[in-house]
Every structure is written in structure tokens, then in C-alpha cells.
Simulated scan of single mutants.
Amino acid sequence: MHLVVVSRIYLPEPSAASFFLSAVAGELSSRNHEVTVLTAAPPRGYAMPERAERIRTFPVLRDRTGYVRGYLQYMSFDIPVFFRLLFTKRPSAVLVEPPPTTGVMVRLACWLRRIPYVYDAADLWSFAAGHATSSSLVLRTLEELERRALSGAQRIVTVSDEVKERIVAWGVTTPITTTGRGADTSQFHYSPAPSKPLFLYAGSYSAWHGAIVLADAFAEFLTSHPGFTLRFVGHGSELESIRERADQLGIADAVEFADPVPPSELNAQLSAATASLATLLPGGGYEFAFATKTYSSLASGCPVIFAGPGPTAAFLARVNTEVHAGAPVAYDPAAIAAAMREIADAPAPPASREQLAAWADEHVSMRAAAERAADAILDVANGATA
């Protein structure tokens, strides 16, 4: 069969969506299906990888950080992809990645061509949007678009049961498959490296992540442990707020901001870091979200300090019963600083990191999630609805 993936972000641009979608495409290709990816042209400096799937790109607008984020940026992808999907070789099914505007365009194109589609509900954007805007009109519009994108699909795949429950509570009756996510352990794995006095936040840091708390925590930590660095790798709408807060606290020289890097480079940084960091803002209506960046860190053998509510804290607590995975703590600067001090004073030795990576490869590899997603897509392509 011919299957199409539609996403504004894909390899070689690093992101959780890129890693997952490429794993799904690879799984479908390994089953001898033809896969075409309709995506955006990557930022300058990224070389297109050699892949089994056919990756077709189109120029898009990007924000000043190089990310496809914002109304105009989304439209620059969504409008062309509508026509691209109309005129591409007829697929048996389509897998579409958020934002909801892309989902609605895919719904319309698929309706016109009578093609079934699967919606990847990794996030629920209308919940997160409350941190980016206070406009009730914008929020209502986005929620309606997201409902339409979800309800028009023949199947939904999602990251967790918590997200599934939110979708069901909306009254969406589309069958839902919880695939999970996991780490691409072909790219994230234990790689022995000299340890560095470094705490690493890798991935997006939007308002609903609440990563600004890390500036206060790190400032408190530095009073007893000078010489460490806090590094943010990725894109985020909170970048300027975090930078300003670091300036106010007098720690700007110890806080770094870097653009996204290829998986191999991020794996090397995680392998050398004292620990990785992840946060989720309490009381923001997005407590059901899972910090998927946790998986890549564990697969690299790097312990995680997670601050906030939701399923990530419970997950780390469970993993800690088997291997040393890090520390789930309260969303509080003092609690985060205490966790930093504890791991800085007793860093994970190489044997512990190797054991952690081996555990991740066995239990949270993206392979199984990709297989479940591929099964769901092929069910839809074959006419099954549940």
C-alpha cells in the first residue's frame, strides 16, 4: 500500500515528533509498504538523511528562532500541504501530526479524495494554548479546530491514557489507540563520555512547561556548587523570559541557550551531563502531559530531574524501583536545587548509566510504540475502524 505522513516537522530537524514519525515510517517501510512524507523544508545546515520513505519538502516561514510556530508559519505549511495532498499519488491512509490547523486541512483533503486518515494526538493544543493567549475567541476557535481534526479521523493514536481520557471527555467517539512513545534507541544509547558539570534541558520550553523555574533553582544550586552550567537545547517561547530571569539572578554567564542539534550530538551531550531536566507547570490545565524528553535521556544513560505534576513523576518513581533513573520532585526552586545538589555530590557512575540505558532499550524503546502505530494505520487502510 501507499501511505502518507503529513507533518510540519520531520527528520533531519530534531524533535519528539520527528523521532516518532520517522520510526513509524520506518516500521511501515519494513513491512514493504510505500511511504511518502509531506513535510517542511528543514532549516539551513541540516542534511537530508537517507531513508526508506520518500521525504518531500516544501519551503515554509519560520520564526526568528528557526521554528515553524505561529499563525503565519502554520498557514505557510497548511495551505500548500492541502494542495500537495490533493495531488500526491493516492494513498490508502494518511497519518497527520498536529497542529490542529494541519489536521483540519488534511481532513478536508481526505474528504475530497475519500481517503481515511489517522490523527496523532501527541498533545492537545487547545489546552496548552491558554498559556500563550488570553483571547477567548482564539481559544474557542482552536478547540473547535482540534475537535474537528480528531472527530474526522478514522483512528486516533496517542501518547498516554491520560490524553486519551481528555479526548473521550470531549465527546470524541473516534477509536483511540494508546501507542506510548519511547526513545529511538538506535540514536539514543549509552555512550561512555567524561562527565561534565552540566545540567541539560533538551527540547521545547513553552509557557506550559514552566521551565523558567529552573533559573531560580540553578541560582540556589550555584551558591554551593559553582562551576556548573545550565544548558537549554531546543526552541521555546519562554527563551527571553528565562534569559531575563538569569540576568536578574546574576547567573547569565552560567546559563546557555543552543539551537536544536542532531540526535547523535544530543546523545553525546546527554551522555556527558550530570543530569537532564524536565518540567511541567502545575495548575495550567496540562497536567496530563508526559515529558517525552525523559525517554531519550534515559536511553542515553542520563538520569532525569523532573519537576511538576502528571504521569512523568509517577513513571520515574516506578523506574527507580528497578534502576537509578533520577528524581521526581515538586515544582519548587528549593526542591529542584536540592535534587541537583544530591546528584552533583554523588553522580551516576558509568556502570549505573549503562544499566539505565539497557533498561530503557528493553522497556521504553520507540520500536514498540511505532509498531502499535503502524498496526493502527494499516487497520484503517484496510477498512477496520476499531
Rank of each mutant, 00 (worst) to 15 (best):
I79G: 11
R69S: 12
L61P: 02
G70H: 05
R64I: 04
M75T: 10
R51G: 07
G66T: 02
R56L: 14
R56K: 12
I55V: 14
I79A: 13
I79C: 11
G70V: 04
D63G: 05
R62Q: 00
D63S: 05
Y71A: 12
R69Q: 13
S76A: 11
R56E: 15
Y67W: 10
E53G: 00
R56M: 11
F58H: 11
Y67T: 08
I55Y: 04
I79R: 07
R62A: 03
G70K: 03
Y71W: 14
L61R: 11
M75I: 12
P59G: 08
V60A: 02
T65M: 14
G66L: 00
V81D: 01
G70F: 06
D63E: 03
Y74I: 01
S76P: 08
Q73I: 05
R56P: 05
E53T: 02
G70R: 05
F77H: 01
V68P: 03
I79M: 05
Y74D: 13
R56I: 13
V81N: 02
M75P: 12
L72T: 13
L72Y: 15
F77W: 01
R54A: 12
Y74M: 07
G70Y: 10
P80L: 07
S76R: 08
R56G: 03
R64F: 10
G66M: 03
V60C: 03
P80M: 05
F77T: 02
G66A: 01
F77K: 02
F58L: 05
P59F: 10
I55L: 04
P80I: 02
Q73V: 07
I55W: 03
S76K: 08
Y74F: 07
P80D: 03
M75C: 10
D78S: 14
M75K: 10
Y67C: 09
R69H: 13
T65N: 14
V68E: 06
R64T: 09
V60H: 00
V60E: 00
V60M: 02
Y71K: 13
Y71S: 11
M75G: 10
T57C: 15
L72V: 12
R54Y: 06
R51K: 14
S76F: 07
I55Q: 06
L61C: 02
R56Y: 05
Y67S: 12
I79K: 11
V68G: 01
R51M: 12
I55T: 05
R64P: 03
I55D: 08
T57I: 09
T65D: 15
